[in-house]
Simulated scan of single mutants.
Amino acid sequence: MIRAYRKDGSADVILPDPSYGEISDTVLWLDLINPSREEELFVEQRLGIPLPTRDELKDIEPSSRLYVEDDALYMTAPLIYRADTDLPLLTDVAFILHKDRLITVRYAEPKAFNLFIQALARGYGRKHTGAVLACRLLEAVVDRTAEVLETLAGRLDNLSLTVFVDRKAAKRRAPRFLEGKLLDIASHHQLVSKVRDSLVSLSRLVAFLQSQPMVRSDAESAELCNLLLRDLQSLGEHAAFIANNITFMLDASLGLISLEQNAIIKIFSIASVVFLPPTLVASVYGMNFKFMPELDWHFGYPLALFAMLVSAVLPFLFFRWKGWL
């Protein structure tokens, strides 16, 4: 689908009709969403520039994501989407600036685009140029990334309270409680890793955009690029802080699991201490020797039981007094 956004705030869908004339100069932004090859060729013929295909976006090398060709500025960056689900993903989005017009090619629906489109419907971009519109769109992407990190930080706080603070609940929880929390930690780590990958690419993209003459000559777009770089730097530091917290929680959770396993082994150790001496007494009196004077004792059986009881209690008390249990 090809959606066109004009300077007056209107928007419509352009169909790849061969009889369609030139794309009007009033179109400020062409947004190609899951475009077919027919739609890509239609835009290429009308604008006179090549567009990256879906396979090219996937196969493009990180060092070749930013370049200038045929008076057009090509920039590609992976953006986070489906961040609110258990399976967050990255999608490569192409940003192209050509003759004061922004063209985007994407094969997913990052939430930042929908938020920015809603802002355009309220007249947000009527006085913008293509470069400024690109900066504003990147600003929406950065704001959405910041929202994802804030949500992730809140989830980590709740997870930390559940795992480390609520000790009363910890005594009542199932033995595999912490193993289940490891899956949550892994999910959070996957999300923050993808966010950090996206932030690194966005930082390179904005720095490249800032170095272009069309941006340096425009005060508004140059100032927006400076703000974006500062925001990206702070978000990168925040994402690193969250990643360190996730690593700490992972290590601490594994430590707690080890403690629970040690407690289980400790129970078996106590059982061994309690039952091993009585087993020894029972083994002695269970031997089938012909001459055993205790066999003729009237109180031999009660005395043997008493010896078993004493041999169980005394080692237990001694180990407890030494602090080994």
Rank of each mutant, 00 (worst) to 15 (best):
R6F: 14
I14C: 05
G21P: 00
D25S: 10
W29D: 04
L30E: 02
L32N: 03
L32A: 02
I33Y: 10
R37T: 08
L41N: 13
L41W: 02
D55F: 07
D59M: 10
E61K: 06
P62Q: 05
S64C: 02
S64K: 13
L66S: 06
T76M: 11
P78T: 13
P78W: 03
Y81N: 03
D86Q: 08
I96C: 06
I96M: 11
I103N: 01
R106Y: 00
L115T: 13
H128M: 15
A134F: 11
C135H: 12
E139W: 06
E139Y: 09
R144F: 13
V148N: 10
E150Y: 09
L152H: 05
R155Y: 10
N158E: 12
L161E: 14
A170Y: 10
A170S: 15
A170F: 09
E179Q: 14
D184Y: 11
S187K: 07
Q190I: 02
L191G: 02
K194I: 04
V195E: 12
V195I: 13
D197F: 04
S201Q: 12
A207H: 13
D218K: 01
S221G: 09
Q233A: 13
H238D: 12
F241H: 11
T247G: 14
D251G: 07
D251P: 00
D251Q: 15
G255R: 03
I257C: 05
E260A: 02
Q261L: 15
I265N: 08
I267H: 06
I270F: 06
P278Q: 10
P278S: 09
V281I: 15
S283A: 15
K290Y: 10
F291N: 12
H298E: 14
P302D: 09
A304Y: 04
A304L: 12
S311L: 05
V313T: 07
P315V: 08
K322R: 15
